[in-house]
């Protein structure tokens, strides 16, 4: 790319924690701004631009207004990148889709005022369920270095490389003891790597916050369930946490 690409950041239903990861890049922020021209980023600067080379979208789509807004951004963007698990799969927000009635969900959260018009909501969608997404950066939150590698790849004109292998690989590379052997239920064998197995390396089992690999073998989870004496519910609850689709069936 000749001149620096114009980059914008937007948020939808999310905690803005992924944008915070970018704001927290520290010295790399300067490197980033040498590489791209950040024209919109509500969390750190004011200003607006009519169009963008790359739009980074955080958050899931849960309202009619969200759909209209994301479509408008898409029209004004050459590339659109969904970053963070909310944008990628709906993330934690998608948990509400598992409930029978959205009305009940709203009552539970907002009490008596649940019916106010600005609280209107529909089942959570990932960004690619509404508009075309060019690249996904998974994770809750995103990994700062992976974000930078995606920006670098786009700047160089190559396809970003997001791992399609499970977290087990990264655990083995760090020579961690398997958490199953320490009596913990870990989604590592299904979960998409790229985080450097940061949770298991600190003794915390993987919750698949980056979603699963392309073809997770959820059925093989049975072998583990039997080997370590867990129930399907225990596994499924964990899988549902980040809006990941596979279902463990008996």
């Amino acid at each position: 790319m000749g001149s620096k690409p114009k980059v914008a950041f937007f948020d939808f239903a999310c905690c803005e924690g992924c944008q915070l990861q970018i704001a927290n890049l520290e010295e790399d922020v300067i490197g980033l701004t040498n590489l791209v021209d950040v024209v919109e980023f509500r969390e750190i600067l004011t200003g607006k631009a009519p169009e963008y080379d790359i739009a980074f979208i955080e958050g899931s789509i849960t309202r009619k207004e969200d759909e209209e807004r994301i479509k408008d951004i898409r029209e004004r963007s050459k590339l659109l990148v969904a970053f963070g698990q909310c944008a990628v799969s709906g993330g934690i927000n998608r948990l509400k889709n598992n409930r029978e009635s959205l009305e009940d969900v709203k009552k539970e959260v907002y009490g008596d005022s649940y019916n106010m018009p600005h609280l209107d909501t529909f089942p959570t969608k990932g960004v690619d369920e509404v508009v075309k997404v060019d690249f996904h950066i998974p994770g809750c939150p995103i990994d700062k270095n992976e974000f930078l590698s995606v920006v670098k790849a786009i700047a160089l004109g190559k396809a970003p490389s997001i791992p399609n292998y499970p977290v087990c690989i990264e655990c083995k590379l760090r020579e961690n003891e398997c958490l199953f052997d320490l009596d913990q239920v870990c989604l590592g064998p299904l979960a998409r790597a790229g985080c450097g197995a940061v949770c298991p390396s600190n003794g915390v089992p993987c919750d698949a916050c980056r979603g699963t690999v392309d073809n997770p073998n959820q059925n093989a989870m049975h072998e583990i369930l039997e080997k370590y004496n867990y129930t399907i519910d225990e596994i499924q609850r964990k899988i549902n946490l980040f809006g990941v689709k596979p279902e463990v069936k008996k």
Binding site: K152, L156, Y165, N215
Partner: peptide, 26 residues
């Protein structure tokens, strides 16, 4: 699971991939 643990820990497995990585300043 196609998790690759078996080949990663194997002392006679040596297959590799080759990648290009660049610094942020390109």
């Amino acid at each position: 699971f196609s998790c690759g643990s078996c080949v990663l820990v194997c002392p006679t497995c040596y297959c590799f991939d080759v990648r290009d990585e660049v610094e942020l300043n390109l």
